[in-house]
Structure formats: structure tokens, C-alpha cells
């Protein structure tokens, strides 16, 4: 399973990771290895087998519609890297680069 550098770039962009050139090349090689190994199960014929997303099967778990106390504004913003007027401050929002 060989991953090309275009795929690494695409996945890094989806994952919001600014990889350096060096990291990218290393990542390409490692991903290829790991997916090579993990990809062994791709060939399995598992058509009649249902997927399992939870090891223990539970159903219909919900809570009553009741209001609980919220954090104060101060608590909510306590660890914000930047804040202004009671809000979290973020740099200019742009679409995907």
C-alpha cells in the first residue's frame, strides 16, 4: 500500500496538521507501512457480517429534558488562549486553505 505525497497533503489538510516537509515524507513512508499491514483485512470477505460499533450492545439511552446549571462566563473563558468581551477570540476565519 503506497501512499503518495498528494494523499498525505490531502489528509493533513483535512486533519488540520501543518506538517513540515520532513514530517510529510516520514509520514508518507510510515503510513504506507501501517496501512499495508492494516490493509490485510481489506481482502476479507465479510459480506454477511454486521459491523460492531459498540462492544456492549445498549439501546435507547436518553436523559430527561431538564435544565442543569451552566458554567459562569468566567469559568467558560478561564483557559481561553484569547478572549474579548465575554467571547473566545479567534483569528480571521477563512475557508479551507
Amino acid at each position: 500500500m503506497d501512499i503518495d505525497s498528494g494523499t498525505v497533503d490531502y489528509v493533513a489538510r483535512l486533519a488540520r496538521l501543518a506538517l513540515s516537509d520532513e514530517e510529510r515524507e516520514q509520514m508518507r513512508a510510515e503510513l504506507s507501512d501501517i496501512l499495508e499491514h492494516a490493509g490485510r483485512i481489506r481482502a476479507l470477505d465479510l459480506d454477511g457480517v454486521e459491523p460492531t460499533s459498540h462492544p456492549v450492545r445498549l439501546l435507547n439511552v436518553a436523559r430527561p429534558d431538564e435544565v442543569r446549571p451552566s458554567l459562569s462566563q468566567e469559568e467558560a473563558l478561564a483557559c481561553a488562549p484569547a478572549a474579548e468581551n465575554g467571547r473566545f477570540k479567534v483569528p480571521r476565519i477563512i475557508e479551507e486553505a
Binding site: D65, E66, V67, R68, P69, S70, L71, S72, Q73, A76, L77, N85, G86, R87, F88
Partner: peptide
Amino acid sequence: ATSSKMFCGCEVAFAGEPNTRTCPVCL
């Protein structure tokens, strides 16, 4: 128009001081 949010107990309401209806879940 439920009383509380979809996945936590914070109140659903319009307007109000910013970030006063949050909790670990909805933050």
C-alpha cells in the same frame, strides 16, 4: 424549543450574555 440542549443540561434560550449557557459538554 426544548428546555435543555441536545446533549447537556444547559438551558436553551435566545440572546443573553455570551458564554453563560455552556458546560463541559457543549464547550
